Amino acid sequence: MIQVPFFSVRDLVVDYGGVRAIDGVHLEINKGEIRGLIGPNGAGKSTFIDAVTGRRIPTAGQVQLGGEDITQLAVVARRMRGVSRSFQRTSIFHDMNVLEQVFLASHQAQAKDPERDAVAILEELDLLQYADWRAGDLGYGQQRRLDLALALVGSPSVLLLDEPMAGLTVTESRDLAQHLKRLARERNVTVLLVEHDMEVVFGISDRVTVLELGKPLAEGTPDEIRANPKVREAYLGSAA
């Protein structure tokens, strides 16, 4: 019996007018896997995430979750099926307290017990002590963790993260990366991580896919990608 990948993208194409931003990308991710997605600026990483999550309907290709074709589903419908994402910029509400907004997000995601779900997420991300704080009063690293909490409510099966370490210090990046790795393992969440911090990507990813000009350049374990001469030339540089 052939095993179907839990989350797959097949021959994805995205056009912006006459410009082909994504050109035939094929990606298969197993349940519980952390997959890094890297590439130079303009490689099409954010466009790829938008197409996978329903913010942009692809020109061609297919997105499957657990064998179901979800290519034409809207963002909300995909979220209800377990596909969640975060953005390069935090999506928190600065004037709302921490617990309230996580609870509301959990309720919107139709968690069975939104209050318990919200408290559990905050506790796992070391944010429960700030439950009554106004989100805007948190430090930036804590705001990034809160953003991750909002993406994790409702127990999604797939989590797509678009540069979650952006703007963080080295220490904050490593801390958030370890939270992410632990939560992915404990919750058996499939993660697609777009990130410029190579130490984070290589440190927590099971496999890494490299894009260049909208096309797949290479795929492999972190060690294989580090050693790949095409990747080093196109992106990583001699310091990789």
Rank of each mutant, 00 (worst) to 15 (best):
E199A: 14
R78G: 10
V201F: 03
M1T: 14
G36D: 03
F48H: 06
N41M: 05
R145M: 07
G42T: 00
P58S: 08
Q108I: 15
M198A: 01
I57K: 14
Q178H: 14
L122V: 10
L73V: 09
G203F: 04
E123P: 07
Y16V: 00
P222H: 07
L12Q: 00
D11E: 13
G82A: 06
D23Q: 07
R116T: 15
Q142C: 00
V158R: 11
G237D: 06
F48A: 05
E172H: 05
D132M: 13
I225C: 05
G203K: 04
L176Y: 07
A240C: 09
Y16C: 00
Q88M: 11
Q88T: 12
T59W: 08
Y16I: 00
F202Y: 06
V210R: 03
R232A: 14
V52L: 08
D137C: 01
E33M: 01
Q101M: 06
A74R: 13
K215L: 03
A77F: 01
L192F: 10
D162Q: 09
L73G: 03
L213V: 14
Y130L: 10
A166R: 02
K45T: 02
G42R: 00
D147K: 05
V9E: 03
R187D: 07
G136C: 09
L159M: 07
G214H: 10
R187S: 06
A60E: 13
A21S: 03
L192P: 10
T47A: 00
L217P: 12
I38T: 02
V170R: 14
K230Y: 04
E224R: 10
F103G: 03
E33H: 02
L183N: 09
V189P: 08
D113P: 08
Q3T: 15
V52E: 11
R226M: 13
R144M: 00
L148P: 03
G220W: 08
P229W: 04
L148F: 02
G167P: 11
V153W: 01
V194N: 08
E100L: 11
G54Q: 11
D11Y: 02
K181L: 12
L176I: 12
G44Y: 01
D147H: 05
A177W: 13
E233Y: 05
P40C: 00
T59H: 10
L128P: 06
G18S: 14
D197P: 03
R79H: 11
M96N: 02
S238M: 11
K230R: 15
L160N: 06
L37G: 00
H94W: 06
G141P: 07
E233T: 14
E68R: 14
G237F: 09
I38Y: 02
G66N: 15
Y235D: 08
R182M: 09
E100R: 15
P216A: 11
L146G: 03
S91H: 12
I49T: 02
D23K: 05
E219H: 15
R145Q: 05
S106R: 05
I225G: 04
L73E: 12
E219P: 04
L211Q: 07
M165G: 09
G61P: 09
L127C: 06
K112D: 15
N30R: 13
M198D: 00
Q108E: 12
R144T: 01
V153D: 02
A234K: 09
N41E: 06
Q178Y: 09
Q101Y: 00
A77R: 12
F6M: 10
G36V: 05
S86N: 09
K215G: 12
Y140E: 06
D147S: 04
L73Y: 13
